[in-house]
Amino acid sequence: MSARGNILGKLRDSLAGTTPRPDEFDERLVTKPWRYAPGDRIARLRSLMEAVHTEVHQCRSDNWPELVAELLNKRNLTNLLCAPAKEHGRALQAYFEATEQRVELLAYDQPVEAWKEELFWNVEASLTGTLGGIAATGTLVLWPDRHEPRLMSLVPPVHIALLKASEIHDNLYDMMVSQDWAAGLPTNVLLVSGPSKTADIEQVLAYGAHGPRELIVLVLEDA
């Protein structure tokens, strides 16, 4: 008999004569305490994210590239990984060219194996979009894809994320259900709620454990 057969067989024997319990999910418990007036969502997300060392900026959807340049220059960063195939990547590229920024824009346009060493040691910052945000927990939702692969938001020490104000949801449940995630998920979904951290030594909080040391969120409001 296979391990599979044995395990399932034992479980079935133990349940002989019983009926499965009904689904008792009560969505009120995961939504009601976590509802906000539309005007309060940004503030809630902001305060939660700032509490865990995230830098949050509110800016207009047409002038954010300027802020990105400023943030990079302030940190003396020399390169930024972004996705030129995406709308925000194009906007950034256009701005950087027009203003002759010194920061080099890099693209994640080949399989990771082809440039692992460089990605892990030389890329200083990355910029990605997000699928949305969650006010209840101060969270960004990322659905990595071909243009913004999984490691893009993880490996570079500074991660800048763009979040449209209109895409901030009250809570995870609302977002998941309204977008029908259960119907099909991408290979990887990430909920990100701050820069990488650890409290494994003496419970002292230290940022930049294995992922980004810094997370910068630009909340984009309509121009």
């Binding site: 399989p111 692969p149 290979t187 709620s193």
Partner: peptide, 21 residues
């Protein structure tokens, strides 16, 4: 914590058109 820094949902290996994973 209201949530951990990362919640990672994995639903498959790298697809042919993806660049990592």
């Amino acid at each position: 914590q209201p949530i951990t820094t990362y919640v990672n949902l994995i639903s498959g290996p790298r697809k042919p058109d993806e660049l990592d994973g």
